[in-house]
Amino acid sequence: MTIVPVIKRDYITKLAEQGKRIDGRTFDNYRTIDIETKVVNKAEGSARVKIGNTQVLCGIKMDIGEPFPDTPTTGVMSTAAEFVPLASPDFESGPPRENAIELARVVDRGVRESQVIQLEKLCIAPSEKVWLVFIDIHILDYDGNLFDAASLAALAALLTTKVPVSRFLKTLNEKERASWQEQLADIYRIPGVNEVPFGSDETSTNQKKVEDFPLPMIEPPISCTAVKINDFVLFDPCFDEEVIADVRLTVATDHKGDLRAMQKGLSGSFTREEIQKVIKGALDNGQEIRKKLNHSIGK
């Protein structure tokens, strides 16, 4: 270990003993969160999230492909994170390392396990064709707390995603198009999706126009992360705090105030009381962040 982290640790813990943090926040406070959606035109959905100086961009691409044999009627989602060297002097190019894989998997789990995307509504023809959803996360500027920034960016991007039906139809020839249009139109008849207009009445059936529709989603849980340094629990760690942290805990809470996911990281440990403290803070901050998220997508 070099000397700089030792000095920084000293400085940060000294401040913490006085109830302070290096950027002047209280222990429970988040840095300023800024969510901007629809930032990439070529993507089906996209969002840029800033938490303080940390900046993350998430883009959603969709395609049509085969479902997994064991789930023939559900769509497929996959998540990838890129720690591009642009974001930090410590990031290197090449295939994703441990950290990028962990981040992608935590974000993926948050979306998949709480069934935020209604994948069962993304089936076109059982066992043959379903929609594939690709969530790609690009770290642009790394100043700590990537878990929260990345999962928030993924949610904001998903919530603004339009399933690119018209783009897909453009790639087919006349005959294929007619048959696919029929099949694609079926997914509009599923409750919850069929409010989207596609053609007016029976007489115009042959020219039934299938349009892009919003990705079917449910209210998502929000992730909040805290770290522990000595005995102090700090929410939304910045880079300097994260580097010296003993242990990290991410808690995802839903709009009813229930817990939907947790992930502990690093080699330290938490007491039961500390975990309660993190959960309480995650609920409070989660509510605020949810408001910001809803606001950013125009709700």
Binding site: V40, G59, D63, A80, F134, R167
Partner: peptide, 9 residues
């Protein structure tokens, strides 16, 4: 190039 920067991922 970002995976999402082009028409086909």
């Amino acid at each position: 190039m970002a995976a999402f920067s082009v028409e086909d991922r």
